[in-house]
Simulated assay, not measured.
Amino acid sequence: MKTYCILFFIISFGFSKACFSQGDIPVPSKVIDSLYKEDQFYLGLTYNILVKLPTGVKQTGFSLGLQGGFIKDIPLNKRRNIAIGLGIGYSYNSYNQNIGIIKDDSNEAKYFVLDDTYEFDYTKNNFYQHAIELPIEFRWRTSTPESYRFWRIYTGFKVGYLFSNISNFKGEVGSLRYNDIDGFNDLQYGLTLSAGYNTWNFYVYYALNPMFNDDVKTALKGERIEMSAIKLGLIFYIL
């Protein structure tokens, strides 16, 4: 009986000690980062619209754009709701339209409009581009250190360098595929705007220069191809 009493005393003392010690442990408070930064990674999806089309040229299907990258957020005020963003990213853009591209024996690209002049059908005619991009943004937002849900309006300028372009044609006369056509402007740039709340943000890109070089003309119409792109879609920002 004496042994059981001693054992009970030891257990009770240990339990009370543990409870007392646990009660003395302070509950950690939430750490607020007063030097927080926002929206340093982005992903976007766009519908690409061709504008300034030559005579007879039209879009023939859905033209898709994808983009993603990293932007360094540089706050400009103490509240940190105004900032500059400098970044680097990648984009893929496809354009479905009826400008045919063919290379002659000297490997020079020729451009013609696929219209009623040609008596053959085709199932695909597009070109798509891969680019490295450098976005620059002026950022306004209603963010605070405690909230991850806020309104934002980001305006900016984006420069892109095409490191690859590919033209595809499939039709009755066969399949044609060309890589790295000289007629495209390797350097492309335009204005950007993204605005929204929390996850959902609308995105607009307006190109300031044409896709093709100044000397590129359609074979049938003799017009310079000055068309450019407007991209409309959604962009998602991640810390």
Rank of each mutant, 00 (worst) to 15 (best):
F169M: 09
E146K: 11
I88P: 01
F163M: 07
V159G: 09
N98Y: 12
Y90E: 04
L114T: 14
S147R: 10
N93M: 08
Y122P: 13
F120T: 07
I101K: 07
R149F: 05
D186N: 14
I153Q: 11
Y95H: 10
A109Q: 02
F112S: 02
Y128V: 09
I99E: 08
A109G: 04
R141Y: 08
D182S: 14
Y161L: 01
K170Y: 12
L86W: 00
N168V: 14
Q97F: 13
L134T: 06
K158P: 00
F120G: 07
E108V: 10
I166D: 08
F150S: 05
E146C: 02
F138I: 03
D115R: 06
I136W: 08
G89Y: 02
Q97D: 11
S91A: 14
Q129H: 08
E172D: 15
T142L: 00
N107M: 04
I181P: 03
Y92G: 15
D115P: 05
D116I: 13
R141I: 03
F112R: 02
Q97N: 13
Y189E: 06
T123S: 15
R152I: 03
N165R: 06
V113W: 03
A109C: 00
E146F: 09
S167L: 04
L162M: 09
Y161E: 03
L86M: 01
I132V: 14
N168L: 12
E172S: 10
Y128A: 06
D186L: 14
S91R: 15
T123V: 14
P135M: 03
Y154A: 00
F157D: 02
Y178C: 08
G174D: 06
D186K: 15
Y154C: 00
D116R: 14
G100W: 03
G89C: 02
E137S: 06
W140N: 07
Y178A: 10
D116T: 15
S175H: 09
P135S: 01
H130D: 09
Q129M: 11
Q188A: 14
Q129C: 12
S167E: 05
K124V: 15
D182G: 11
I136D: 04
H130V: 12
E172W: 12
N165G: 11
S175W: 08
I88A: 12
G100Y: 05
G100R: 05
N125Y: 07
H130N: 13
N107F: 11
F112D: 02
G171Y: 03
Y148T: 15
G85E: 02
E137P: 03
F150W: 04
R139P: 08
E133H: 07
F127C: 09
Y95P: 02
G156V: 00
Y128M: 08
A83Q: 00
F184N: 01
N96I: 11
N179W: 06
N93Q: 12
L162H: 07
V113C: 01
V173L: 09
D104L: 03
V159F: 13
N107Y: 12
D115T: 12
R152Y: 05
Q188K: 15
Y95I: 10
I136G: 09
I84E: 03
G171Q: 11
L162G: 00
S94P: 00
G87K: 02
L187K: 03
D105G: 13
